[in-house]
């Protein structure tokens, strides 16, 4: 392939190349690469007493972030992301199986049940949950009406509530890849398994699960990663008791007004994400399934 491209050829290819690849390159450079580099550079800066960014190299931010308080929140965030992912698998798998294997017209309806909330702004939906779960909310009203509780139950501002909100927001990201994987499953394999004497339970663990594991992997990665950053869910439903990494970042950029520290936190989140994606590739995940 060491064919030399002549000067003339190069010139005649330049215009179409610019027209076709130019706009997307510009978008990527100015909206992705430049901000990323800016955040990277800023994470090594510091602030003066008036909260102005001082462009002087220091690793101070990263050292600060290794503090036990921060580490506790990373751990908490990872744990919550893990639980959310597991719950999404447990709830999403049967539902995806149902959609993928239903032959009737209900298939579209079931599919829409996932898609339509997905199109609605998640902030609004999370506020909906808050109204529903609050001490004056519908759920408490119902419980009291049925005399199951005397006092209103405080559902909000618990880690469990945040996880519930995360599962609710992110479950479409689990269901869609699972649906694709289960739909691809060849029905004759299930018949073959039954034909060879496998009970439904054995067929599930021997055939269905191994052949749809790619969907579980890609769904998990697509739930786990956003879970680390969904600060508004933790804010609205967790009320500061269940912070995720996203909350720390948000706080440094907003109320904390410490952009370099926020940038360093962002870099840590990006690194975590990259490590997870790398792990995903290691176990044989297909990058196309992540939509990248």
């Amino acid at each position: 392939m060491d064919k030399k491209i002549s000067r003339h050829e190069w010139k005649s290819n330049l215009l179409p190349a610019l027209v076709m690849a130019g706009p997307v390159t510009l978008v990527l450079v100015f909206l992705v690469a430049v901000p990323l580099v800016y955040v990277g550079v800023m994470s090594f800066c510091s602030i003066d007493e008036y909260y102005n960014v001082v462009f002087k190299f220091s690793t101070e931010n990263y050292v600060r972030l290794l503090n036990a308080d921060y580490l506790k929140i990373y751990g908490q965030s990872l744990a919550m992301a893990f639980i959310t992912t597991v719950l999404c698998i447990l709830v999403g798998y049967p539902f995806s199986y149902l959609i993928a294997r239903t032959k009737s017209k209900r298939k579209t309806l079931l599919y829409m049940l996932v898609i339509i909330p997905f199109w609605t702004n998640s902030l609004i939906r999370i506020y909906g949950w808050r109204t529903f779960l609050g001490t004056n909310g519908w759920l408490n009203g119902l419980l009291q009406f049925l005399h199951l509780t005397g006092e209103p139950v405080d559902f909000l501002f618990r880690q469990g509530t945040t996880v519930l909100g995360m599962v609710y927001c992110l479950i479409p990201f689990m269901i869609l890849p699972l649906y694709t994987a289960i739909e691809k499953l060849d029905g004759s394999l299930l018949e073959a398994s039954a034909d060879l004497g496998a009970r439904p339970f054995a067929t599930f663990f021997q055939v269905i699960l191994p052949l749809t594991s790619s969907g579980i992997f890609s769904g998990s990665i697509m739930v786990f990663i956003p879970c680390l950053g969904y600060f508004f869910v933790a804010d609205i439903l967790g009320g500061g008791n269940s912070d995720v990494i996203g909350n720390l970042i948000e706080r440094q950029f907003q109320s904390g007004n410490n952009w370099p520290l926020g940038a360093a936190l962002s870099i840590i989140l990006i690194v975590m994400t990259l490590v997870l994606v790398k792990l995903y590739q290691k176990v044989g995940g297909d990058m196309d399934n992540l939509g990248v």
Partner: peptide
């Protein structure tokens, strides 16, 4: 799965994630 009848499928329906040995052994394992 309770019948003493076996089928050879038109599309073969071999389990793609199992080796040839495990494919053939499937019925006996069950």
């Amino acid at each position: 799965f309770e019948r003493n009848v076996n089928t050879v499928f038109q599309s073969y329906a071999l389990f793609p994630h199992k080796t040839i040995f495990d494919n053939i052994a499937y019925g006996l394992k069950m």
